[in-house]
């Protein structure tokens, strides 16, 4: 089973949702999710069923991890290079 990538809900139709995982769209069932889900929400998916609506306050944090990761790997982007530099500096400061 995959690590459970959170996806962004694009549209909801009863107990079915179209969820976007970095541009790949999949149909996910909402039968067992723990809170009402609307377009724009983030959900944790397991074998085609949403098992958790990730609360808004955690969304930014969860998103940031993926986006920072994606940005960091874009070596041609000068801003991303700055981010990487900052993190590296933070690590060095902690070591020093």
């Amino acid at each position: 089973m995959c690590l459970g990538v959170p996806g962004r809900v694009v549209e909801v139709d009863g107990f079915l949702a179209v969820v976007d995982f970095w541009g790949v769209r999949k149909e996910i069932r909402l039968d067992v999710v723990d809170a009402p889900v609307a377009a724009g929400d983030y959900v944790l998916n397991h074998v085609g069923f949403a098992i958790r609506r990730i609360p808004a306050e955690d969304v930014a944090e969860t998103l940031a991890l993926y986006e920072t990761l994606l940005a960091e790997l874009d070596a041609g982007d000068p801003m991303a290079a700055d981010v990487r530099g900052e993190l590296g500096a933070a690590g060095a400061a902690r070591r020093g």
């Binding site: 995959c2 690590l3 990538v5 995982f21 970095w22 541009g23 790949v24 790997l73």
Partner: peptide, 8 residues
């Protein structure tokens, strides 16, 4: 895209 496709 490659990173996403690889994970998925």
């Amino acid at each position: 895209e490659v990173r996403a496709a690889g994970e998925l």
